[in-house]
């Protein structure tokens, strides 16, 4: 844990809502319709979550989504074999599935704990706040033009893939610019599976094909800091941070970006 953090501790339980809903549904079905229906529901829900993660893997290309998806898919198949469930599994198959399930669970857990499978929204906000000394507030809900950066169209696309694969920010690619939204696990559900992709009122940094960089900090994220940090400095810092990331990436020092984030030792489950 970062003892000098300028961010308030993450207390959102949004990330646990899907698991809680499945569990509540499971126990309610068991109570009203019996064990077989409850296990059937559980297996279906876990399968659905597994497929969703598989689709997310295709989009993000972070291996954590793949191992998590396989863990859930194996778990879903195993659940169908539990006594009383619609499909009984032979003991040989149950052993193979059990071993696969355990393997992917351990692998996913390793990826989470080593922060390879973690949205880096909190790290980005922490690094943004680091050079900001003033506490003059001044929040305003409009984007801040940062300045110019040098990159080619191909470099921008490669940088986009790098940020996405390493879950540093979720990119929204438009015809002439790319928006990078640094998100946390709690926010990822709305960003990945929500239907409203309007970035107004959200935190983002944009790079256009002309080299112009702009940044926007949402009020919610601004309130996640302990102090009322001077807003224009904060926006400048967010934009400059991504320009710095771009420079490091161009030099082939992408790993240094990851190291800087890991050094903050943020909770891997945020």
């Amino acid at each position: 844990m970062n003892l000098h953090s300028k961010l308030k501790p993450e207390k959102s339980l949004v990330g646990f809502i899907p698991a809680a809903v499945i569990l509540i549904g499971f126990f309610m079905l068991w109570f009203f319709w019996g064990k077989q229906t409850a296990y059937g529901f559980m297996a279906f829900a876990i399968f659905a979550a597994g497929f969703l993660l598989l689709i997310t893997y295709v989009r993000i290309l972070n291996v954590g989504f793949l191992t998590n998806a396989l863990f859930l898919l194996f778990a879903g198949i195993m659940l169908t074999g539990i006594g009383g469930a619609p499909f009984e599994l032979e003991s040989g198959w149950a052993g193979i599935l059990g071993a696969g399930n355990l393997f992917f669970m351990i692998l996913t857990l390793y990826l989470v704990l080593s922060r390879k499978y973690k949205w880096r929204g909190r790290e980005v906000l922490e690094l943004t706040a680091a050079p900001v000394e003033g506490t003059r507030d001044g929040f305003t809900a409009r984007p801040h033009p940062i300045g110019k950066a040098e990159y080619s169209g191909q470099q921008l696309m490669d940088f986009t893939k790098f940020l996405r694969r390493n879950m540093i920010a979720l990119p929204y690619v438009e015809d002439d610019r790319v928006f990078y939204a640094p998100i946390t696990m709690a926010q990822s559900f709305c960003h990945l599976y929500g239907w409203n992709h309007d970035l107004s009122g959200k935190t983002w940094v944009s790079f256009d094909l002309g080299g112009n960089v702009a940044a926007n900090i949402a009020h919610k994220e601004y309130l996640s800091y302990h102090e009322d940090l001077t807003f224009d400095q904060l926006c400048d810092s967010l934009g400059s941070l991504f320009i710095e990331f771009m420079e490091m990436f161009k030099k082939g020092d992408g790993i240094r970006i990851i190291n800087r984030m890991n050094a903050l030792k943020e909770n891997p489950f945020t």
Binding site: G134, R136, G138, T140, H144, T230, F231, Q233, C235
Partner: peptide, 10 residues
């Protein structure tokens, strides 16, 4: 023009 208007603390 307003997009480039300095922020309240700038």
């Amino acid at each position: 023009f307003l997009y480039h208007l300095p922020f309240p603390t700038a």
